[in-house]
Amino acid sequence: MVVKPDWLKVKAPQFERVGKVKSTLRELKLNTVCEEASCPNIGECFQKGTATFLIMGPACTRACPYCDIDFEKKPQAPDPLEALHLAEAVQKMGLNHVVITSVNRDDLPDQGASQFVRCIEQVRKVSPDTTIELLIPDLCGDWNALETILNAQPDVLNHNTETIPRLYRRVRPQGDYARSLQLLQKTREIAPWIYTKSGLMVGWDETEAEVKAVLDDLREVDCDIVTIGQYLQPTEKHLGVKQFVTPETFENWRKYGEAIGFLQVVSSPLTRSSYHAEQVQELMAQYPRSKG
């Protein structure tokens, strides 16, 4: 049994608050990546009344060996009521900032782009002041699908590189590092007013220099925000942890990222893509952008 260091231990959640959020999600038949991907911050986020909604799931068309989302079930057709239910949840939970992500849907002609658009439109109808962050898959390099999503005007477009190029074949065999960078670059070209974001996990024997090289690549495509967190093995059948990176190393990466020009770097052992995502509102106020 792998013993986690003290800095990876989290407090037990207050189940009354967590239960209320879970009840809302079950009532509206919604999935969250918090639950499906076994996020270690689920207690903290649910206690605050926040969640990252997982649409078009929970079954995924890819089998990344680090991810706890189910790829053995057959993906179903997108639920036509999902966007309405998601918007209702945003309203009930009183969210100022919502994160919407999805499983990979390589089986759909538009990679699921139209479902993202429906969710944005419905949230804007019931809660126009809520800022919207999307965490999207690579869309198999379908830039028409990307443009469809961007035309719906999310405030933040997030796509994770996940790991360093050397480890892609092992960690993300159906992904492509260059394609992920290109997606972020295309986003900047199509909609330069939208804030771009990416993230990676560490703990698979990558070096500090290799992580810095990914940060350099992300700045080359003018990515605004980056998150770096410790990978934790969900089950015995998933990829194992090679190393527990110290908080001091995460802090070094944060300082490096800020030095090379990221507007925001969130780097710590428990950081995940959507952890404290609402803080992007402070960044948007400090560095405002307008269309055109």
Score class of each variant (00 low, 15 high):
T163I: 05
L200Y: 03
P137M: 02
P75S: 04
I149L: 14
Y256Q: 13
R62F: 04
Y256C: 15
L86V: 13
A12Q: 07
P5T: 10
L200K: 01
H85V: 13
S114M: 13
G199C: 03
T207G: 09
E162F: 04
R26Q: 10
F46E: 13
R254E: 10
L30P: 01
I136F: 04
S198C: 10
A87S: 08
E35S: 02
D106P: 10
T24K: 08
M1P: 14
N41K: 05
W193G: 12
C67L: 03
N160V: 09
S198E: 04
T148E: 03
D224N: 09
P75I: 05
P80M: 05
S23V: 11
L270R: 10
N158F: 04
L181G: 06
T52N: 09
P13Y: 03
K186F: 00
C39E: 01
P13D: 05
Q91F: 14
G261L: 08
T187W: 00
T227Q: 06
I132P: 07
A145K: 00
L84V: 15
T196A: 05
D6K: 15
I42D: 10
I55V: 04
T163F: 03
D107N: 11
T131S: 15
N31F: 03
A145P: 02
R179P: 00
L215C: 08
R172I: 03
V90M: 13
Y195M: 07
C45I: 07
K237M: 05
